[in-house]
Amino acid sequence: MVGDDLPLVGVLSEPDPDKNSAPDTAVILLNSGVIHRVGSCRLSVTLARNLSERAGLATFRFDFSGIGDSEARRGTLTAAQAAVEEVQEVMDHLNQWKQFDRFILYGLCSGAFASYRTALCDGRVIGTVQLDGYCYQTWKSSILHYAPRILSPSRWVQFVLRKLGLVKFKKGAEVSGIEERYFEVPNFAGYPPRQEVTKGLRELNERGLSMLYVFFGNEYYKYQDQFEDCFKPVVFGDNLTVIHHPHATHILSEPEERKAVVESISDWAQDLIKHTQQPDRNGSETGHRVSLSASNEAPN
């Protein structure tokens, strides 16, 4: 146990010493919504081990306060603000404990948003991996979204039947049997203004942050280049990699799609390390001591 009050619980996974590609760098895996640090369909566990074995990188996956094994903390911060503070606490702790001073942040949906916000305010972050991160509709995505619906006779029939009360519309919770509070899907209405995200991405790009965005098949992201079209004012160059898996679900429940995404993340991280290797370890200022509970890699 590290810390006395309301510790955060995390799991550290380290590569074999002879396969460690970056002793100064760690990948931090963040929760998505209220899902435990194992991740949806064990995605975080699979990714952590793949990054360790395939890319030679240490990983730390932990539960935000109030999620999984981490007790809730009281305070005046919003959930978004608290997430950034806790990620920074984890970075401080890993620096003190294992001397990591460079970090790659990974997250799915709300975890992606936390990765983005933390990168904005902490220069120790050299890369972010965001699955279904911030993106907005473009004129092309709107056409691709609405045209098939407008031109589909069966959809018009279903629309009329629902209006007449002859067919009941079922929500995802009713179809899947999963409680609705565990659903987390992209929601443009809950996003910050596009101009704000554009400004943030420009700052990160000018800083040289490496960004990997992975988008799945959903109602909002419709084609490969939508992210770049959405944020045209930002000239990303080599800092940006975008992957689109149109046939994958938001939680990557398909084994083959999950395997492909995990391997592409590991390959991207390995390439990032090759291009950002430092000849010597540079010391970094550490903040206040973290309240964390960390253990070595375990089955969960």
Score class of each variant (00 low, 15 high):
D5Y: 12
G10A: 09
L12R: 09
P15M: 05
D18G: 00
N20Q: 11
A22F: 01
A26K: 02
V27K: 08
L29E: 00
L29P: 01
L30H: 03
S32Y: 00
G39H: 03
S40K: 05
L47W: 05
R49G: 02
L51F: 13
R54W: 08
R54G: 01
L57Q: 10
F60G: 08
R61F: 02
G66I: 00
G68S: 11
D69Q: 12
D69C: 02
S70P: 01
T76S: 12
L77S: 05
Q81P: 00
Q81V: 03
E86Y: 04
V87P: 00
D92N: 15
D92H: 09
N95C: 14
N95M: 13
Q96P: 00
F103K: 08
L105Q: 14
Y106G: 04
L108Y: 04
A112C: 04
F113M: 14
S115P: 03
T118V: 03
A119S: 09
R124L: 05
D132V: 06
D132W: 05
Y136S: 05
W139C: 09
A147L: 15
I150H: 07
P153K: 09
S154P: 00
W156C: 04
V157S: 10
K163V: 10
K170Y: 07
K170E: 15
G172P: 01
A173N: 14
I178C: 05
E179M: 05
G190E: 14
R194G: 01
V197Q: 08
G200M: 06
L201F: 14
E203A: 15
L204H: 02
G208K: 11
G208N: 07
G208H: 10
L209K: 00
L212F: 04
Y213C: 09
F216Q: 15
F216M: 15
K222Q: 14
Y223H: 14
Y223G: 01
K232E: 14
V234R: 11
V234G: 06
F236N: 03
F236V: 02
V242M: 11
I243M: 13
I243A: 11
A248W: 01
P255V: 12
E257W: 10
A260P: 00
V262C: 12
S264K: 03
S266T: 04
D267L: 05
W268L: 09
W268D: 10
Q270W: 12
D271K: 10
Q277W: 11
Q278H: 06
S284R: 15
E285N: 13
R289E: 13
S293W: 12
S293C: 11
